[in-house]
């Protein structure tokens, strides 16, 4: 599936770029090809009746997109919002969505550093969102499966909320 992205790129140059960031106490990374832009925290409009992890909606250059609190979504303890809190805009399953993260940066990852097996991670993060592990010299990044952030189960979730 989406691992294709990693593999295909890797196949040609054995090196790929990822956007690394922090949420709570964990480090994450997403394929740079999935990232549309990184923007400063915006004015958030609350979205009543939406799932809990939806922080609200924002105006991204005239487009209205949902903003997801990644900590809530991944089920980990959130850190405080700081000056380096940013919104990483990604495409998740065809839908543009903003993710609230800390200190995003672009890192170069060699294919050797990428391990597909999520079993090795000792983390609270639900394995469904994990695509693999990136081992950098001084830190360990969890490669997120961006497409699963807004999955069908979530859409069902919205339906349920609606009916309830």
């Amino acid at each position: 599936m989406e691992r294709e992205g990693i593999e295909r790129k890797g196949f040609f140059d054995r090196e790929m770029q990822m956007v690394a960031f922090r949420v709570g106490k964990e480090d994450f990374a997403v394929d740079v090809m999935k990232v549309e832009s990184v923007i400063p925290m915006a004015d958030i409009t609350r979205m009543p009746r939406a799932p809990e992890f939806v922080e609200g909606i924002i105006n991204l250059r005239g487009q209205i997109i949902p903003l997801v609190d990644l900590a809530k979504r991944l089920g980990i303890e959130p850190g405080p919002r700081t000056e380096s809190t940013r919104i990483v805009v990604v495409e998740s399953g065809g839908v543009k969505v903003g993710l609230i993260v800390e200190s995003p940066e672009v890192v170069k990852v060699s294919m050797e550093d990428l391990e597909a097996s999520p079993g090795l991670v000792a983390s609270d993060v639900e394995s469904a969102f994990i695509k693999g592990i990136v081992k950098l010299s001084e830190r360990l990044l969890i490669a997120l499966d961006v497409d699963r952030i807004l999955t069908d189960e979530e859409k069902d979730g919205i339906d349920r909320i609606e009916k309830g």
Binding site: D43, T45, M47, P48, R49, V54, N59, I64, I65, V95
Partner: peptide
């Protein structure tokens, strides 16, 4: 403005609009 697929299913809102301040209003 339309809400994307992800939020469309939520009842009670016809969409959202961008105000003069750049903020979004439902």
């Amino acid at each position: 403005g339309t809400l994307d697929e992800f939020l469309k299913g939520i009842e009670g809102f016809a969409g959202a609009t961008i105000l003069g301040t750049g903020r979004v209003a439902l």
